[in-house]
């Protein structure tokens, strides 16, 4: 198996052993989503109107929550040095880490979203686009977030700093992710926003691992 597969398999095994990470991500996603009716009021028209946006913002923050640990544990226990000296290109190491993060955070969010959507009275026509948009958007969030996670390695208060660095870069994904759900609700064309999300995913897939690799090599100096 190539270095990519070995690292991914190990990270998934570790994630299964400490399944806490994905549980905290889903837990945060749930409690944050449920907070909005308390703030905005339980009337279904208002909630339905903002349901797409709320689900996306809380999903985005939940994914950000677990990002800091993507490289931090390996950085602290010295495993990162062993990975960098494995002959596997650093971009592939990063990709394996990002896929592991997406599997432990992105997929649970995609599963949890339709379960939570009823609490916000998301119209039936919004479920399909929501799932499609999350499926395309959450990997992009993990890829962009990985750049931030690598940059803050070894920094003071890395967690807070990570959100300041990464959230502005999440805005385009948020805009088109919510737009896809809105389009579904208002029976407009869902394809255009989804295509833009796919475009952003491909751009992130090609560029983010390289930037993350540069940041990782800097952290290991």
């Amino acid at each position: 198996m190539s270095g990519f597969g070995v690292i991914l398999a190990r990270d998934l095994k570790l994630a299964l052993r400490q399944s806490g990470d994905s549980l905290t991500a889903i837990g945060f996603f749930a409690i944050a989503t449920v907070l909005f009716p308390f703030g905005v009021g339980p009337e279904s028209e208002i909630l339905a109107r903002i349901s797409g946006g709320v689900l996306w913002v809380t999903a985005l923050l939940a994914s950000l929550l677990s990002l800091e640990r993507v490289f931090a544990t390996d950085f602290e226990d010295g495993t990162l040095d062993q990975l960098l000296l494995s002959g596997t290109p650093v971009s592939l190491i990063v990709l394996a880490k990002v896929v592991a993060h997406w599997a432990t955070t992105g997929i649970p969010l995609i599963i949890a979203a339709p379960i939570l959507a009823p609490t916000l009275h998301l119209p039936a026509s919004g479920y399909g686009p929501l799932l499609a948009a999350l499926a395309l958007g959450t990997p992009t969030l993990s890829l962009i977030g990985a750049v931030g996670a690598a940059l803050v390695l070894g920094a003071r208060r890395g967690g807070v700093l990570l959100s300041l660095l990464v959230l502005p870069l999440y805005v385009p994904v948020l805009i088109f992710g919510t737009a896809a759900v809105e389009a579904g609700i208002t029976d407009m064309a869902v394809r255009p926003p989804l295509l833009v999300l796919a475009g952003m995913f491909v751009l992130a897939l090609t560029m983010a691992p390289f930037a993350t690799a540069v940041a990782l090599r800097q952290a290991a100096q």
Partner: peptide, 18 residues
Amino acid sequence: ALGEAFEDPERGDKAAAV
């Protein structure tokens, strides 16, 4: 914020540059 977040100033320079 990133530039000032490291003890080693040159680490901050490189991270901020990226």
